[in-house]
Computed example of a mutant assay.
Amino acid sequence: MSGGSAPWLVLAAGAHLGFQLTVTLVVYPALADVSPDQWSRAHDAHSRRITPAVVLVYAGLLVAVLASLWSEPAVPANLAAAAGAGVCMALTAAAAAPLHSRLGHGHDALLVRRLLLVDRLRLLGALGCVVAAVLAA
């Protein structure tokens, strides 16, 4: 990528991958281990604490992806990075957020397992995004 957006895309995709790895390997497993009688308190605290980080990381990723597409829209690696980021954002909006909303009403083991699955899919999207961003650079 000859444009000035390449370092920003790599930085944003890397930050997102680091965030996603932390959620997948640390945050969600800890949340899944919470007993049903402690669930509501733990889930509410998790939601309050993680929301600002999600907004910050996803906003940075969105801006970097849009800048890369604006500067060089026909570069296949830019398109692939955008697709990886899009997968993560779509899964968050269409699956993770609604699951969290339902889990906010109480513990449900099936919903927790679905959330963990959706989260692993987001990790794959984040990995694809960062690989493509590095290739675009």
Rank of each mutant, 00 (worst) to 15 (best):
A132W: 02
G125V: 01
L56D: 05
S71C: 14
R41L: 15
S35R: 13
G86K: 01
G84I: 07
V130D: 07
A82N: 01
L21R: 10
S2G: 15
L110Y: 10
G4Q: 09
A59S: 04
A30Q: 13
R114V: 04
L127P: 06
G14P: 00
D37A: 15
H100A: 13
W70N: 15
P36K: 01
A93G: 15
L11Q: 00
F19E: 01
V34N: 08
H105F: 08
A95F: 13
M1K: 05
A85E: 00
G106K: 05
H100K: 11
G104S: 13
W70D: 11
T24Q: 08
A80T: 08
S47D: 11
A132S: 13
A126M: 06
L69C: 04
L25F: 08
F19G: 10
C88E: 09
A126C: 06
A6D: 05
L121E: 09
V54H: 04
W70C: 15
P52D: 02
L91K: 09
N78Q: 09
L66Y: 03
S47E: 14
T24C: 04
D44Q: 12
W70E: 12
V63P: 00
V57M: 02
A132L: 10
L135A: 14
G86S: 05
R49G: 13
I50M: 10
P73D: 12
S47I: 04
L111C: 04
V75I: 11
L99E: 13
H107M: 07
L62M: 11
V27F: 08
P73W: 13
P52V: 01
L135R: 14
L127S: 10
A137F: 06
G86I: 00
A53Q: 11
L115G: 08
A132I: 08
A59T: 06
V112I: 04
S2A: 15
A133H: 03
H43W: 10
L127N: 10
P36L: 03
C88F: 06
L11R: 00
Y28P: 08
P7T: 03
L124M: 05
W39T: 14
A94V: 10
V34W: 03
V27D: 08
W8K: 03
R102L: 14
G4S: 10
R122I: 01
L31V: 07
C129E: 12
R48N: 04
A81S: 06
L115W: 01
A15T: 05
A133E: 03
C129P: 03
A137N: 07
V55K: 09
V87H: 05
S35L: 11
A74V: 13
S5R: 01
L21T: 09
C129G: 09
A94T: 09
C129A: 14
D33L: 12
R114L: 11
W39E: 13
V65T: 07
V112P: 07
Q38N: 14
A136V: 00
S68P: 01
